[in-house]
Amino acid sequence: MSQIGRAVYLTWDYTWSTLRTLWDVASHTFAKRDTVEYPDEMPYLAPRHRGRIVLTRDPEGNERCVACNLCAVACPTDCISLQKTEDETGRWYPEYFRINFSRCVYCGLCEEACPTYAIQLTPDFEMAEYNRQNMVYEKEHLLISGPGKYPDYSFYQVSGKAVSGRAKGEGLNEAKPVNVKSLLP
């Protein structure tokens, strides 16, 4: 008998759940719409929204990018390429920096990989072009004049590498260079 009881219960259960589902869905008829009617109405994009990629400068106004290639290797679509070069004081910077936005998926892995906060994604996504070739951005298109989301960080201050205006031992948390000729213990 319990089998029949179970069958009755299941029939009831299924029927009820079906009807309840129908009611739940129907009850949305007069709910508020979630859709934001872009472009009539511009949505709010958080500062950390992953849109157009920029290259930032450090607080001193120098290019932050040191051409370490980590963004390029982190990129799942291999759409970043750059070439390291250096100035006469040994400061690394990219000779060219190219992002093929027609391949970019805005995953933000480049930003995560960047050890100098140079590459940052910004809340701008309106980059459509009629000609795909225009989606290729070079350094002059990418480089902005400010520090972006991280106003204070300056890589060469903590790198321990001597560059212009900052000799060995002049960075943050650095001791004066070792005097090799000293015989003191």
């Binding site: 949305h28 008829t29 009617e37």
Partner: peptide, 16 residues
């Protein structure tokens, strides 16, 4: 009906 259906589905899914 194709339009009605899409509108109605939209409405029940809190879209337009």
């Amino acid at each position: 009906l194709t339009w009605v259906e899409r509108r109605m589905l939209g409405i029940w899914q809190e879209r337009y």
